[in-house]
């Protein structure tokens, strides 16, 4: 006797579907487990949001409440007006946006070349993209620190923009290649017969079709630049040049135990990233799976 062959007596009607009792129990268990998993896994994020919206005394109360008793945006206002946070925010935006722009433009053409053109060294180039993704940043940061000092780029955003561009290239190229390869070849062949050049075909036919891919890669590059910690920590010295991650980390020393400010700060950094991620998650997931995966 199999589950599918259940007799009518063991089945119930639910929203127009016939479900066996056994199926209903399974479904209940599955949703129960899912709900528990979501609650436990997202609790830290919930707690960050909740803490950032509580007045400071509530954070250090003997009896903690899950939701704020008196909701307030005071912490956000304090961080934004009472500290250097707006400067960090602007710095991060600048560095992340510039490096994303360069890496997307550069990787677009490189990815197209390896997706569509047969040339000697294509395999080696692809392999290079795969291998360089594995180099530990903690190893690269020591020689790069010495190099940028020699070049007089220490304590500049230029150094960060160049570094972020270069470090996201292997992955963005890999990811975009996946998107380009998914576009049917026939379209380009037709354009080539009509006499369009390679670049023209790329700009007029491939790029518009690869919109979601470009968007995903842009998002990905931006998130990486926005979140990056180690290189900013090593390359920058002056507070007015700090990006958000090292700005917030330095708060930790300056405002120890000011968890009201720290959680609001963390909220400000997380919010834009979370928003864009939820908006674009389908394409980002698609790109991740096509791109040999990079976390």
């Amino acid at each position: 006797m199999t589950a599918q062959a259940a007799s009518p007596a063991t089945a119930i009607e639910f929203a127009g579907f016939r479900i066996t009792y056994r199926g209903a129990i399974t479904l209940g268990v599955v949703y129960g487990l899912l709900l528990i998993a979501v609650t436990v896994i997202l609790f830290p994020v919930f707690w960050m949001a909740s803490s950032s919206l509580k007045p400071a005394p509530e954070l250090f109360a003997r009896n903690q409440t899950m939701l704020p008793v008196n909701w307030t945006l005071e912490n956000y206002r304090n961080v934004w007006t009472g500290t250097d946070f707006p400067t960090y925010f602007w710095n991060s935006f600048k560095v992340a946006a510039l490096s994303t722009f360069f890496s997307v433009v550069i990787s677009m053409y490189a990815a197209y070349a390896i997706a569509r053109i047969r040339f000697a060294g294509r395999y080696a180039f692809s392999l290079l993209m795969l291998v360089t993704q594995m180099f530990p940043h903690i190893l690269l940061v020591i020689p790069l620190f010495l190099i940028i000092q020699r070049l007089g780029l220490f304590n500049t955003h230029t150094a960060l923009v160049i570094a972020y561009t270069a470090f996201s290239l292997p992955f963005t190229i890999w990811m975009l290649r996946g998107f380009f390869e998914a576009i049917p070849m026939e379209l380009e062949e037709a354009a080539a017969i009509d006499g369009a050049s390679l670049l023209m075909t790329f700009h007029r036919i491939i790029l518009p079709l690869a919109g979601p891919g470009i968007a995903a890669v842009t998002m990905f590059g931006f998130i990486r630049g926005w979140n990056e910690f180690l290189f900013a920590l090593v390359f920058l010295q002056d507070r007015e040049l700090f990006t958000l991650p090292i700005g917030l980390a330095s708060f930790q020393e300056e405002y120890t135990f000011r968890w009201d400010l720290l959680m609001a700060g963390a909220g400000i950094i997380t919010l834009p990233v979370l928003f864009f991620f939820l908006l674009m998650q389908r394409f980002i997931v698609q790109g991740l799976l096509g791109g040999a995966v990079k976390g």
Binding site: V45, W47, T270
Partner: peptide, 16 residues
């Protein structure tokens, strides 16, 4: 929902 921890910036994750 299950992907959210992945996008939280490291600094925020650690501090949180």
């Amino acid at each position: 929902l299950f992907l959210i921890p992945w996008v939280i910036p490291d600094v925020c994750t650690a501090l949180l």
